[in-house]
Simulated scan of single mutants.
Amino acid sequence: MRIPATLVRGGTSKCWLFNSQDVPASRDLIEAILIDTFNAADPRQIDGVGGATSTTSKAAVVSAATAEDVDVDYLFAQVGIGDSRVEWGSNCGNCATAIALYAVSHGFVEPTPGTTLVRMRNLNTGTRLEADVATPGGKLPAFGNARVPGTLATGVPVTLAFLDAAGATTGSALPTRHAREELAVEGQHFLVSMIDAGAPMVLVDAGSLGLTGTEGLAELSALVPLLTTIRNAAAVRMGLRTAGSPVDHAVPKVGIVGPPKDFVTTGGQHISGSSYDVSVRTLSMHTPHPAIGLTSAVGIATAALTPGTVVNTAMVRGGSRQAADGVTHLRIGTAAGVIGTASTVDPFGGTMRIGLERAARIISESIIFSREAATARTSA
């Protein structure tokens, strides 16, 4: 069966996007199609459209929203690599950036001169997002000059904002009701903060690991087994799964947090500790993230505003910087460079808005051949 699909780079991820009208309504059938077309069972994904890395083995199904204040709904899928399954428990800000372009290019939203607002809802978590997409002259450009840390590629400028992202999965920004606590893992104790904002996260104080938080990707790779064990223990503590139940490798996100120090990026750029507020290194599934996932950046920004968290206490100058316009800016030092967030609280409605500057580009409009989709249609 032939399935129309669009490949879009959003930030530092690549996402295959499907119109909901072109795939079955059943999530089980969608999962079977993704496992087949990505060749998820093969660690190289050689016989499929997957990129064989956690940042390029992603997909989303996009549909016109039924709510009046939302333009598109999307269901995000993290497709397995060497693992015949799909994890549905999370969201991806980079893919949301890609979906914003897709919504304009595929007629879900009519472009307007200057910028076009796209209002989105993630069906996995209920998180609401807004994106301002650059549409000069009321047209979506094929290319752009915007760039983000973690890639040399340029793309169309997109400002992505998460709205009231705290507690979307667990019901609380602090699922355990503690800003900071010790987590016991295999006879060791680690100082952590467990946050639910953007996506559930467990953030480990770098000092309790004997680290600085500015380690390179090679050093972080050696810590993947330990960080995975910490993630699994935190998932139980946060109520995301019960002990003994199947492990989810997508959530909670896991990261190491430390105070700002000088370091050299993966691209060879020297970063001064005075140029950012907090050091963060995160995992994406089983590997170090080359920069940081946007949902993780939202969690870091939320933790920065929460007294007592490992992020808040690691920051210099007593916390993030408050601008005169009421926007709190946070500069996050990642292995790829510094990524900024801007947090605003509506004084009347109480809405929290966390914005990030991104870039995206549509790479391909394609037809994917699916054996599973053909089987599903024949069965129907």
Rank of each mutant, 00 (worst) to 15 (best):
A360S: 10
T228M: 14
A234V: 01
R371E: 15
P157D: 15
A233S: 14
I99F: 14
G293M: 01
D47K: 02
G210L: 11
L183W: 10
L117G: 00
D36I: 00
V278S: 03
N39L: 10
F190Q: 03
G82Y: 13
L217N: 05
I33P: 05
R281Q: 08
T159S: 11
G349I: 07
V23W: 00
V224E: 06
G89M: 03
H289Y: 11
T135I: 09
P246H: 03
T228Y: 13
S364N: 13
V311N: 02
R85A: 11
A165Y: 14
V61F: 09
K58H: 12
I332R: 00
S296G: 09
A59V: 06
R361G: 03
L75P: 14
A324K: 01
S272G: 15
G89N: 08
T115K: 12
G319E: 01
D205E: 13
G107A: 06
T125A: 01
V49G: 07
G244L: 04
P290M: 10
G138Y: 13
I292Q: 06
G144K: 11
R2D: 13
V49A: 12
A134E: 13
A134R: 12
S343T: 15
G293K: 03
L217A: 01
R361S: 13
A359T: 01
V61R: 02
F263M: 04
E130D: 09
A173L: 15
V61E: 07
A314R: 02
S84I: 10
P141E: 13
G155Y: 00
G319H: 08
G11A: 06
D83P: 00
G213I: 00
V278H: 01
I300L: 12
G340P: 07
A342T: 02
T287H: 09
S193T: 02
A184E: 14
T169D: 15
A161M: 14
V156R: 02
S221E: 14
G244E: 03
A142R: 11
G293P: 06
L152D: 15
G258W: 01
G318S: 10
A376H: 03
A303L: 08
A314T: 00
G340M: 10
G213L: 05
H289Q: 11
T344E: 07
D42H: 04
D22T: 01
A59I: 12
F108S: 01
G319D: 00
V62R: 00
P175Q: 05
A166W: 11
D248S: 09
C92G: 08
R9C: 05
Q322A: 14
M352R: 15
A134D: 12
A336D: 06
L101Q: 01
N19Y: 05
